[in-house]
Every structure is written in C-alpha cells, then in structure tokens.
Amino acid sequence: MTDLRLHFSKTFAARYISHLDLMRTMTRAIRQSGLKAWYTEGFNSHLYLTFALPLSLGFESLCETCDIRLLEEESCDPAEVIPRINAGLPFGIEVFNCGEARFKPGEIAYARYICELADAEFSCGKIQDAACALLAKSEIPAQKKTKKGGMRTLDLKPLIHSYKVYVEGENCYIDLTVSAASDNALNPNLVLDQIFEPLGRMPDHILVKRTQILTRDMKNFE
C-alpha cells in the first residue's frame, strides 16, 4: 500500500461545503475514479481518508490536503491520478498536486489566512485602522465557546504569529499567520469579531482564504 497526499483547493461555492460533506464528496470522487484505494476493516467499512486540518465553513483554501491509501497495483503518478479524481469533484474543489506525505498532521504549527474585507459604509481606511488598532495591542482578550457550551476568555495575541494589513483596490486585506497546532488552533473569525466589535457590526463582504499550512520551521505542509 502507498500513502498518497492529495493537495487540493476549495474555492467559490464549494466553500459552503462542510467538512462532513467534503468527506462524502471526496469519497465519491475517489470511488468514481476507479482507483483502488484501501477501506477500513471495521464493522462499518469505509474508504480511508484523512484531512490534515479541517477548514471552517465559508472559508476558501488553496492548500487543503487529503491522505488516501492506494493498493499496491495502483499507479501514484500525479499525471494519471489527478485528472481521474478531478473528474469526480464538484465545481470549486480541485486536486492540483499529489505525492508522498512529507510531514505528519501533528507537525502542523501555523496556518496563513488572507481576509478580504469591504463594506458599503465603512471605508477601507476605517477597516484598516480598526484592524491595526486591534492587532497592535499587547493583549487581545476574546470570548470563546468551550466544548461544554460555556464561554471562556482567551488571549488571542500569543496565537497570532504575524500579520500585515493593507488596502488594495476596493478591499482591505488582513494577512494573518496564526497558530494551527491541534491543541491551540485559532480561527481567524475570532480575530475578525474583535476587530469589528468597536464598529458595531461585521462588514458586508468577508472572504477568508487559507493560503498556507506551515510546520514549526515554517515549511509548507507537504
């Protein structure tokens, strides 16, 4: 058996496909490709799939991964595997590369997100100022839902590795690199909520795009 890491993007309308639905969609795409992949051997046998870092509903991504296991006889040649799987994927989800898994999902430390923001009322400058004001603070306390349904206060600052705020065209962009370690991941929505709290509401247009998943040494997760 060969472990194969598929690298794919999830953009446009496909950003509204939830993680669970993505698993179903990927399973069907691999099944229709005819590639002989490994199934788990439990009571409810299913196609083996592992996604390294689930993506929030509504986010786009250029750097998703999905690991599958191909049976011995299958070719792992990207030129053959990629078109066969893509033939079964919906508009907006596209495998662009595949290969050996260099890192384990546990080695993921950071993720980089670009948040595109615009509003009919708030100018780009205003959004930029709000973002810079918040991100420059030494502490960013935020309320976060706990798994038990309660709320706890969390300081976002140590989870933000680096950031850049800039205006381009009609939009304001926040380029955020944040912790994505499994025990300490930061959802950029939490940061956006804090930025817009002083403005009283969220802007009309928010598009968050994940552009990189990184290891502790800032290497691309491959």
Binding site: F12, Y16, G58, G88, P90, F91
Partner: peptide, 19 residues
C-alpha cells in the same frame, strides 16, 4: 446571505453531473 443560514450547501449548486 449564505453566512447566515443553516446548510448553505442547499443553495450553491455546482454539483458534479449538473448540466
């Protein structure tokens, strides 16, 4: 609009096999 609703996948189309 889609950020504010349950199961936005109902409204986006783009399925494989759609004509």
């Amino acid at each position: 609009m889609l950020r504010a609703v349950q199961k936005p996948g109902r409204y986006v189309g783009g399925e494989r096999g759609a004509v």
